[in-house]
Nucleic acid binder design. Structure first.
Length: 322
DNA sequence: AAACCGAGCAACCGCTGTCTC
DNA sequence: TGAGACAGCGGTTGCTCGGTT
């Protein structure tokens, strides 16, 4: 495989494009199409390499490019898709009409990534970070997470009391820490019945927050407003009175039906739905066609944690029909 | 007003995958 | 089948601009 020699040629201009160069490029592509990018600069009278022309066109001059800030919906879509596809910016861009891979990549690195980190979520794995063992220090991050989630669910008719949820989660975790001071805080997923969302650090015990961040159809409003000594998780209501000696984890994650898996499944449904409707900008809804989205996701998902889950899920009976 | 700093983003670099001969 | 040519992709760089001191 030889490397492209086009940019090795000397004497070609680099750096920012001038309006004159833009005009030349636009006029040429309007008249003749881009054809071979390598040949284009000469034909268009540009002292640039073909690669530079292609980049300028696809990232800036293309007429269908959408300008302006990303909407909350677009941001949510990017997060969902990134959780499934990783840094496959061009694939993600394919689901966001008018947005370029470069733009999405920049937006991820400058905005979303920071938000996720502040929320205690690893932007690479989309799992809670394990370096937040200081329970108290993590509270502001959870609150930030809750606030961010509110932002993402602006179109939901019912707004949650995120602060109450955060406080409840924090209290729960405090009690868990106090009750488990003789146990390791690390998680051994091979020898426990809980996944990382259900064990250990404060942020890992925030299923409602993390789940709803990724799942645009599940509003945090599912959580009833309750006193701090009793609150619900998607899997049930937790109360101090349940067990004074051993606080149960807020979420269990048996291999056959973790909330994490459900979350991932719904994300994949969104992806599949968008592809099948050929309308990526359509409202994110779910379909019930289990096998077909598995087929599609198999093509796009990376060799990651998600892929393992996908394979596992696709090999099992569909458990989530409503 | 000037210097400094950080965020944002356009553009480049270099690698990979695919096609063709 | 292997090598070269090319397009595309993801990571990185460096410039610009706005805010702060």
């Amino acid at each position: 495989m030889g490397r492209s020699p086009c940019c090795d040629e000397s004497g070609l201009k680099k750096g920012p494009w001038t309006p004159e160069e833009d005009e030349k490029l636009i006029n040429h592509i309007r008249k003749h199409g881009h054809g071979s990018w390598r040949a284009l600069p000469k034909q268009a009278g540009l002292n640039r390499c073909g690669k530079s022309c292609r980049l300028r066109w696809t990232n800036y001059l293309r007429p269908d490019i959408k300008r302006g800030n990303f909407t909350a919906e677009e941001e949510q879509t990017i997060i969902n898709l990134h959780s499934l596809l990783g840094n496959k910016w061009s694939s993600i861009a394919g689901h966001l009409p008018g947005r370029t891979d470069n733009e999405i990549k920049n937006y991820w690195n400058t905005h979303i990534r920071k938000k996720l980190i502040q929320m205690g979520i690893d932007p690479v794995t989309h799992r809670p970070r394990t370096d937040h063992l200081n329970v108290l220090a993590a509270l502001p991050q959870l609150l930030a997470a809750a606030s961010f989630n509110n932002l993402l669910t602006l179109n939901q008719s019912i707004q949650p009391d995120a602060t109450s949820v955060a406080k409840a989660q924090w209290l729960h975790n405090m009690m868990q820490v106090l009750n488990s001071n003789n146990t390791s805080s690390s998680v051994d997923i091979h020898h426990t019945n809980y996944n990382i969302f259900g064990q250990s650090s404060f942020l890992e015990n925030r299923p409602n927050i993390s789940e709803n961040l990724y799942d645009p159809t599940q509003s945090i409003s599912r959580i009833d407003h309750q006193p701090l000594d009793s609150f619900s998780s998607p899997l049930g209501v937790f109360s101090h009175q349940d067990n004074e000696d051993m606080i149960p984890p807020l979420i269990s994650a048996s291999s056959d039906g973790s909330k994490q898996t459900q979350m991932m499944i719904k994300n994949k449904e969104i992806l599949k739905h968008n592809e099948h409707t050929s309308n990526p900008s359509s409202t994110l809804t779910f379909t019930q066609d289990h096998q077909s989205w598995c087929d599609i996701i198999d093509d796009e998902a990376s060799d990651s944690y998600w892929k393992d889950l996908i394979e596992q899920t696709c090999s099992e009976p569909w458990p989530f029909h409503e």
